[in-house]
Simulated assay, not measured.
Amino acid sequence: MTIALFCAGVFSLSLLIYPYAIYPALLRLFPRAPVVGGGQGGANTPITLVFSAFNEARSIQEKLENIARLKARHPDLEVLAYDDGSSDGTLAAMQARPELLEVIVGEGRQGKAHGMKKLAARAKGDIVIFTDANVLLDEDAVDRIRFWHGDPDVGGLCGNLRYLGADTSTTASVGGAYWRLEEKIKDMEAQTGSVMGADGSIFAIRRALYPDFPDTVLDDFTVSMNVVFRGFRLIKCNDVIAYERLVASRSDEFSRKVRIAARAFHTHQHLSPQLGRMSLLNRFKYVSHKLLRWFGGLFLILALLSFLGFCFALSLWLGVLAVILLILTVTLASRTGFTPLDSIFEIALSMIATLWGVIKAIRGQTFQTWVPAASR
């Protein structure tokens, strides 16, 4: 029993760290698949930029200024925005700039996926750039997106999202570190073929590849994975740069993780038939990058229980001491501060939030609408 508990703890811990350490190491073993870019297909391709907004009064003016700079450089850039029932002046601010963008007004709260579908249906560009209302694009982004789509094998791309405000709290610091690791893993996936899904902050696809889907799924995940399903490459391009502010509040980030995880796993359930038809390499990457990561909180709990059981199996007093140390560690780590202990607690809390979101999805709960984080 003692050996079994120890082995169970080691196995659970291995599954916990696999998506972040072991999987990237394995990716280095696969053959490289370079992307050419350029050519005749990208230089003058019409492009549409789309985003959905809800109560973004704090960031919408900065977004409009960013669009103005993009339009000054690319007068032919079509920009479409969807307002999902804002009540804070977001809609008025966007409608005041008709020279920059066309605004589609929703009928109450319908959610981002609903809005993005309306925008994609109205888009005239052969390439559609998807972004968020609080995300700013580098002025070179449009040119670089055109360039990479010059490769006929490329159906879409993920941009390079750079987070701002990592020094404002431990939550933001850990969030920034997590995203830097995520960016590196996407780089490595792209070097072997395709990335397993894009983040909604900045990605682009050929409009002809836009799929139909229900309003309850994650539109960015669904749309970007359809590129892979259709036999094209979804790549990662570090010269397509966007900027976004990190969430600084622990409670805001926990709620955001729960919502995103619930929608992501619900999307996984919706896409299951197509996922099963992917190539063996892509299925390996998907399970490693997505599926195992969603259950990281479960592996964390199993590892803790196994090692505690191991301590109790060795000695009652050793088990009691291990429980006391665990309680003290959690108590100290839960206090906000820039310490390694606090960062570890933040990572664990993030995994638990993700697991809780997955459980909600398994139980049939979905999240169709969103509310911007107050601490962003």
Rank of each mutant, 00 (worst) to 15 (best):
L5S: 02
F6W: 07
L29R: 12
R32A: 06
V35G: 04
V36M: 11
V36N: 07
G38Y: 05
Q40E: 14
G42Y: 08
N44V: 02
P46V: 01
P46N: 06
S52W: 01
I60K: 04
D83G: 11
D88R: 10
T90P: 00
T90D: 03
I104H: 14
K117N: 15
I129H: 02
F130K: 08
A133C: 11
D140E: 15
R146I: 11
G156I: 09
N160W: 13
D167Q: 14
A177I: 07
Y178N: 13
W179G: 07
E182M: 13
A190E: 03
Q191P: 00
G193M: 08
S201Y: 13
A208R: 15
D212G: 13
V217Y: 09
V217M: 05
T222Q: 08
R230W: 00
G231Q: 10
G231I: 05
C237D: 15
I241L: 12
L246T: 14
V247Q: 07
E253G: 05
R256M: 08
K257E: 13
L271N: 05
R283P: 10
G309A: 03
A313P: 02
S315E: 00
W317L: 01
G319C: 12
L325S: 09
V330Q: 09
A348V: 08
A353R: 02
I362V: 15
A373W: 10
A373T: 08
